[in-house]
Amino acid sequence: VDAFAVGAVRAIRDSGRRVPDDVMVVTRYDGPRARTCEPPLTAVDLQLDRAASDAVELLLARLRGEDPAPREVPGTAVTAPEPRVIARASSLRAP
């Protein structure tokens, strides 16, 4: 997903516009390309590493016949980590 945002930055520049002065760019994945793009991309950190780890632990517990984690929401055993916005230069304009 961050590859698309980096491509958008290139297309914006190719059209003669500037990021973030003319167009702000934000991605929903805080991957290496988001952090190393020029300008660095504002991103939503979905904490995918933690979500994947939680999913594996849940699966392993079920395979062992255990009832994992107390149920906080009917029909689920774990809650997803809270996403957070990481503001970077691609969406910040000087006043």
Rank of each mutant, 00 (worst) to 15 (best):
A3P: 15
A3F: 06
F4M: 15
F4K: 12
A5C: 10
A5V: 11
V6T: 10
V9T: 08
V9P: 10
I12A: 03
R13S: 09
D14Y: 00
S15I: 03
G16A: 08
G16N: 04
R18H: 10
P20K: 00
P20E: 00
P20N: 01
P20F: 00
V23Q: 09
M24D: 10
V25D: 02
T27F: 03
T27D: 05
R28P: 10
R28G: 13
R28S: 07
Y29H: 11
Y29Q: 12
Y29N: 11
D30R: 06
D30H: 10
P32C: 08
R33C: 08
R33E: 14
R35G: 03
R35E: 15
R35N: 06
C37F: 01
E38V: 14
P39Q: 03
P39K: 02
P39L: 00
L41Q: 05
A43T: 09
V44G: 07
Q47G: 06
Q47W: 07
L48Y: 05
L48D: 10
D49P: 04
A51W: 10
A55P: 04
L58G: 07
L59F: 11
L60W: 03
L60P: 02
L60I: 11
A61Y: 02
L63F: 11
R64S: 12
E66G: 01
D67C: 02
P68V: 06
P68W: 01
A69M: 08
A69K: 07
A69T: 12
A69Y: 09
R71V: 13
E72F: 08
E72K: 10
V73W: 11
G75T: 09
G75C: 06
T76N: 03
A77L: 13
T79C: 05
T79N: 11
A80T: 12
E82A: 15
E82W: 04
E82M: 09
